[in-house]
Design a protein around this nucleic acid. Structure first.
Lengths: 247, 247
DNA sequence: CCCTTTAGGGTCAGTGAGACCAATAAGGGA
DNA sequence: TCCCTTATTGGTCTCACTGACCCTAAAGGG
């Protein structure tokens, strides 16, 4: 670290920003808060906040996650560092470096609304991507897009999908996670074969079954297994017929 | 961002740390600097430095990369944000948040040594992983391990391997990238088939050929193509006979 | 003049995934 | 009550890809 020992450093404000996803009514939702003050007053933004003096970014993110979602058991939720956004002009007032996280919540509790005159809400992700809520505050549109891409990619080669599901779920519900995040349809039979062929992805709960959508044959119930990675991966169907693979 | 508008924030020092990899003499090397001052005086560390007031972490990383490697053309090199390390006690003197990057350099020029009484050197990665250089300063052992894992993983599903190669390279040299980073052997014929079957991974330079290791049939020369991703991926051979897939 | 080494071309079998089809078991409406 | 729809679950078939091989070509070294 050249320069370090001269203490020739500039102080920065460090924040965390959270892209919290959940599944609600068969659609992907994202937790947003409405800003009360300038800049970007009245605009939607990702929840987040400043790092406290003695906590890591991970601790701060989990604390914010608990505050904003109102969830009591926030310890087991999937929370993953995305990347850090540090463009000098990303905040018009001062120099803010923000460590972004992506979080997955199984069932969507009522949104809390943070302390700061901010309204919080679960909003459908797709509407937001189409600009229905207007541009988000700061560079949060970009952070949200990066988070969605990361989650979609991780579904391919990890067992992350169970993090969107309640403790007991059907294979149809698990498949819906993939379909909703990827925005594609999957063959139910092939998906079932793949999931069951992966040791430790899910464990069947003997004898238990439940109706999924109100109609149809009752489905067997499963729990998340202990596996974390998917070998070989479950690749999302490629929408591109040819190109789109250029730098 | 609750709390944000109250300006109730703590100032932090923000640095970048770089894990710069290269291939030299058929082995993976990492760029390290020897610390001149306390703490960790005399210990090896990853190169890095403080963010300047008007630059992003990416800019700072590229600036440090140029300074430490002495490379003139640093614009085309692969530089990728890894993650941010923010444990409160990671620096014994003060609160430092560090944005880590992984960089890939094709040919290894002589190491420069930064401004700060620091000796810089390219050292074999494997010796370091076995502890031959002692523990690195700060949490740099962890950062380096994370960087290696990230690079190894990205070789599977991206065309990143060409970033380790000079502008013109043989398929044997490209294969060696995978073998050295993964620490495994690959079948030359199968590797060749896979690479050539991926459109845009490499482009053959017509008529050109070169001897690879001094012996053997001269190999055709290739340039990096425009493709960035590998579908389907080139999965590394699984060393695990059974488990190791648990949380 | 072999022997070794590397490149480059091919075959062959096994695995896995996509595209199907069919049976089962539930609810809803006529 | 009797279909019709819906969703689960099991099965088959085929093609693509991969790993494990083989062989030959073309270079250098002893």
């Amino acid at each position: 670290m050249p320069g370090y020992d001269k203490y020739a450093y500039e102080p920065f404000a460090v924040t965390v920003d959270l892209a919290v996803f959940t599944l609600r009514a068969g659609r992907l939702h994202i937790l947003l808060v409405e800003r009360g003050q300038e800049p970007y007053a009245g605009r939607w933004a990702l929840p987040g906040g400043f790092l406290e003096p003695a906590e890591s970014a991970e601790s701060a993110a989990r604390r914010e996650l608990a505050e904003e979602t109102g969830l009591s058991d926030v310890a087991g939720l999937h929370l993953e560092q995305l990347r850090t956004y540090s463009e000098p002009d990303r905040d018009p007032r001062m120099r803010v470096v923000s460590v972004a996280f992506a979080a997955l919540v199984p069932d969507a509790p009522a949104a809390q609304g943070g302390g700061d005159a901010a309204r919080a809400a679960w909003l459908p992700y797709e509407e937001g991507a189409k600009g229905a809520y207007g541009p988000l505050a700061f560079d949060h549109d970009r952070i949200l897009a990066d988070a969605h891409e990361r989650i979609g990619g991780k579904l391919e080669y990890t067992c992350l999908a169970t993090a969107f599901c309640p403790p007991e779920f059907t294979l149809g519900e698990l498949r819906q996670v993939y379909e909703v995040v990827w925005g594609t349809d999957l063959d139910p039979a092939n998906f079932r074969r793949k999931v069951l062929a992966t040791p430790g992805f899910v464990e069947q709960i003997p004898g238990a079954s439940r109706l999924t959508g109100g109609r149809g044959k009752p489905a067997a119930l499963y729990r998340a297994g202990g596996a974390v990675s998917l070998h070989p991966p479950l690749l999302r169907p490629v929408p591109e017929p040819a190109e789109g693979n250029r730098r």
